[in-house]
C-alpha cells in the first residue's frame, strides 16, 4: 500500500525579523547623527595667497575688538553703515580686524559678519601669537 504524502504548504518567509533589523538601523542613525544646521567662515585659504597684492600703498581700515567683544572703528562702535560709508570713500581699502585676546569667538564672528555685510572684500584678521 502506498501512502500519499500530504503536500505541505511552503513555509512563508517571515518578514517580522526584517522589520526588527530595520528598526534597529533606524534608531542607530537617529541617535548617532547630528542635525545641527552649521555654516562656516574661512580662516585660512590657500587660494588667497595667489592673489597679487595691489601695487602702491593700500589704505587700511582698522577694526578693533575690545576684550568685552565690542568692535570699534575710528573710536566709534562699528556698524555696517559706518563701514560701508568708509569703504565707499576708499573702495580699495583693506579691512583689518585687530582682536583683543580676551575677546571671545562670538565677538570676532560678529565683527566679521558686520564687515561682510558692509561689503568688505579684502578682509584680514590680525592673529596674535601665543604668549606662553
Amino acid at each position: 500500500m502506498k501512502l500519499a504524502r500530504r503536500k505541505r504548504n511552503m513555509a512563508l518567509i517571515t518578514m517580522t525579523p526584517l522589520v526588527d533589523v530595520m528598526m534597529i538601523l533606524l534608531v542607530f542613525f537617529m541617535v548617532t547623527s547630528t542635525y545641527l544646521d552649521l555654516d562656516m567662515m574661512p580662516m585660512v585659504q590657500s587660494e588667497a595667497e595667489g592673489v597679487a597684492a595691489p601695487s602702491g600703498p593700500t589704505p587700511t581700515l582698522l577694526i578693533r575688538i575690545a576684550a568685552s567683544g565690542e568692535a570699534r572703528m575710528r573710536g566709534r562702535p562699528l556698524t555696517a553703515q559706518t563701514l560701508a560709508t568708509a569703504l565707499q570713500a576708499q573702495p580699495r581699502a583693506r579691512v583689518l580686524i585687530l582682536p583683543s585676546g580676551g575677546a571671545n569667538v562670538q565677538g570676532l564672528v560678529s565683527a566679521i559678519e558686520t564687515a561682510t555685510k558692509a561689503g568688505a572684500e579684502n578682509l584680514r584678521v590680525v592673529r596674535l601669537e601665543a604668549s606662553e
Partner: peptide, 15 residues
C-alpha cells in the same frame, strides 16, 4: 569653537 571661547585659545591655534 565654543562661542564663549577666548580668542587666545583660537587664533594662535589657527596660526
Amino acid at each position: 569653537a565654543h562661542g564663549e571661547a577666548r580668542l587666545t585659545n583660537l587664533l594662535p591655534l589657527v596660526t
